[in-house]
């Protein structure tokens, strides 16, 4: 290899560098953030800013402690993951539980594995799941927006109001699409999520294999799961589940992730299907959030192996799609 100072080929580089990818992700989350702030007011702003700040500080601290090279730019991945985590929280999460989630996500799932991009599992997802498992009572607040628009500072620190909203079936289709119903900060508005997803797809920072196959799997396995759970199946309930459970958010922003999901078509589709089946299989037995997020983590673990196998598959792949044989 050359010891020369000259730059080596290639001399042009795609615009899609790491900051670009992270900024695109940030931008794609903007609509969901707007939605959260619109419906949950200052409380949502405080939570979002807090999570992003805490994530950045924690990451920077870890990098400093481990003296790891973090690249020559400001690590935007912290901001992205902080925002992602905040959007998956209920609006009346306390700052303490949010902090626990951030620390778990940042230190355990991100920095221990080697910092930005080296994490095997999705930090935001694992952080969210962690607090859900550690203390479900912290996470119960799905309360209606009018109670959450304004807040007393103490309620941010000490306790969320555990006013759980059990049944979403009363909501109309238009409400579910526009996010006008109580839910997590950022996962409620389907339209916003879809816009984010479209933006990511246009910008090329999302792989559609997994999200699409995941959603298709969910759709096809939902009836079975429902029959196991309640012995009944209604089409309405099905639509409501799809729109209100945050599955689309998970599909777009967790399964569309570049870092933690398989990079090849076969593996991506396989991972999406596995994730969907796991979600549906665990749905009757676990709490909604756990059954939604745990499969994502499982698939994250899988993806490394999957990538390995799919490579062998695709090495044999015929490049016929390069040619127009007509």
């Amino acid at each position: 290899m050359s010891k020369d100072k000259r730059q080596l080929a290639p001399f042009i580089h795609t615009e899609k560098n790491a900051p670009y990818i992270y900024m695109t992700l940030l931008a794609s989350l903007v609509p969901c953030t707007v939605c959260g702030i619109f419906y949950y007011g200052i409380r949502a702003i405080v939570l979002i800013l807090f999570c992003m700040l805490a994530f950045t500080l924690s990451d920077n601290f870890c990098v400093r402690v481990t003296r790891r090279r973090s690249g020559d730019y400001f690590d935007l991945s912290s901001l992205v993951e902080g925002l992602l985590l905040a959007l998956m929280l209920p609006p009346n999460t306390t700052l303490i539980s949010a902090l626990v989630a951030v620390l778990f996500a940042s230190v355990i799932t991100k920095q221990v594995f080697g910092g930005a991009g080296s994490n095997i599992i999705n930090p935001a997802c694992s952080g969210r799941l962690f607090i859900e498992l550690v203390s479900p009572s912290w996470m119960q607040g799905f309360s209606y927006r009018e109670d959450n628009s304004w807040f007393s500072v103490i309620s941010l620190v000490v306790q969320g109001e555990p006013a759980k909203y059990k049944d979403y079936s009363n909501f109309t289709f238009s409400e579910l699409i526009t996010g006008n119903y109580p839910g997590l900060i950022g996962t409620a508005c389907l339209a916003c999520i879809v816009i984010g997803g479209l933006f990511l797809t246009l910008k090329g920072t999302m792989r559609l294999y997994s999200p699409v196959s995941y959603l298709i799997t969910l759709i096809s396995f939902y009836p079975i799961s429902m029959l196991i759970e309640t012995r009944t199946f209604t089409f309405d309930g099905f639509i409501v589940y799809l729109l209100s459970s945050g599955a689309v958010f998970v599909a777009v922003f967790l399964l569309g992730d570049l870092t933690t999901m398989p990079s090849r078509f076969t593996a991506g589709v396989f991972a999406g299907v596995v994730c969907g089946i796991l979600t549906m299989a665990t749905k009757p037995f676990l709490s909604p959030m756990v059954s939604l997020l745990a499969p994502v983590l499982a698939v994250n673990f899988l993806s490394f192996v999957l990538d390995f196998f799919s490579k062998t598959l695709s090495r044999r792949k015929v490049r016929s799609r390069e040619v127009d044989l007509s």
Partner: peptide, 30 residues
């Protein structure tokens, strides 16, 4: 990037506010 973010912001706000107007009738009824 900033342009796009602003665009998305406007789009998101439009959707949320519009959606709220559209669906708040339902919400009120509910």
């Amino acid at each position: 990037f900033i342009m796009e973010a602003v665009l998305l912001l406007v789009l998101g706000a439009a959707i949320v506010i519009g959606g709220n107007l559209m669906s708040s009738k339902n919400a009120t009824r509910r």
